[in-house]
Amino acid sequence: MTTELTVLALAGLLQACQFALFAIRANLELGPAVTMGPRDKPVQLSKMTGRLQRAMANHFEGLALFTIAVVVVTLADESSWLTASCAWIYLIARVLYVPAYAFGWTPWRSVIWVVGFAATMLMILAALF
């Protein structure tokens, strides 16, 4: 398995951890009657739980682009030290993004996001050129 695919698998596990972290907090905060219900009305989350939910949603978006980058690199057989390094940078940025978002690290949350996004785009560009 290439480094890029390994990092993609780890990013999937990170996404599962983010989901669990958010879900546990939401269940403790709101109770199972709300979280297992239809939630026809918007629920009010605490600041921290809301941030964890938004960080999780943001990673779903970033993970889609990162998956594209890994698929392009892998299928084009363009794996290199650059694409492997970018993959690790993406994962490290995404790990750091969780506490950055949860604790409101301004402007570092945005800086960390840009680093992960840039690493993803550089992977795609490396495969194309």
Rank of each mutant, 00 (worst) to 15 (best):
V34T: 15
L65R: 04
F60K: 07
R54P: 01
L13W: 14
T83P: 00
R39D: 02
A16R: 06
G50N: 11
I112N: 00
V73Y: 08
M1C: 05
A11T: 14
A20Q: 07
M56P: 00
Q44V: 15
Y90I: 06
W113H: 10
P38R: 09
A127K: 04
T74G: 05
R25D: 12
W81G: 09
G37E: 07
R39H: 06
Y90P: 03
V70H: 03
Q53W: 03
G31A: 02
M121L: 15
D77Q: 14
T6Y: 13
L28A: 06
M36I: 01
W108P: 00
A55M: 07
F103H: 11
G104W: 04
T67F: 14
V72P: 02
I24N: 08
M48Q: 14
P38K: 12
V43T: 11
L5K: 12
V72W: 00
A26I: 01
G116C: 06
A87G: 11
L30F: 02
A87D: 02
R94L: 10
W105N: 00
W113T: 02
L75C: 10
M48N: 03
F117P: 00
L122S: 14
T3I: 15
Y101N: 00
L5M: 14
M56I: 00
A84T: 12
L122R: 05
T106P: 00
V71E: 10
T35S: 11
T35C: 10
F103N: 04
V7P: 02
V7M: 07
A127Y: 02
R51T: 00
W105A: 05
G116F: 03
L28K: 13
L5T: 12
P42S: 10
A119Y: 06
N58L: 07
I68D: 03
A16M: 14
E4I: 01
I68H: 04
A126P: 06
A93R: 02
W113S: 01
G104C: 01
